[in-house]
């Protein structure tokens, strides 16, 4: 069976946003820093709303931050 998983580039996007801290990003989208950490590690898939908020913070299209890829 073909399996997909959600891949994110949040860490990379933070780096190119003047090394934005996890805390800063967390405060902007209304989650805890630990949730940002879990998202970056791929241990938690955020809701659509939070995923869109992350894309808005980085000012880029949704699919530049989150993609659905083959395992």
């Amino acid at each position: 069976m073909v399996e997909f998983h959600i891949v994110n580039r949040v860490r990379e996007k933070r780096f190119f946003a003047n090394e934005m801290t996890q805390q800063d990003l967390a405060e902007r989208i209304g989650v805890t820093r630990q949730t940002i950490m879990a998202i970056e590690k791929g241990k938690y898939s955020p809701s659509l709303e939070v995923a869109f908020k992350i894309a808005v913070v980085f000012g880029c299209p949704f699919e530049e931050v989150f993609t659905y890829e083959l395992l």
């Binding site: 989650v31 805890t32 630990q34 949730t35 879990a38 955020p46 809701s47 939070v50």
Partner: peptide
């Protein structure tokens, strides 16, 4: 600060 914030969607 965390106590004031409460729960987020993951919690």
């Amino acid at each position: 600060k965390a106590a004031e914030f409460g729960s987020d969607e993951r919690d």
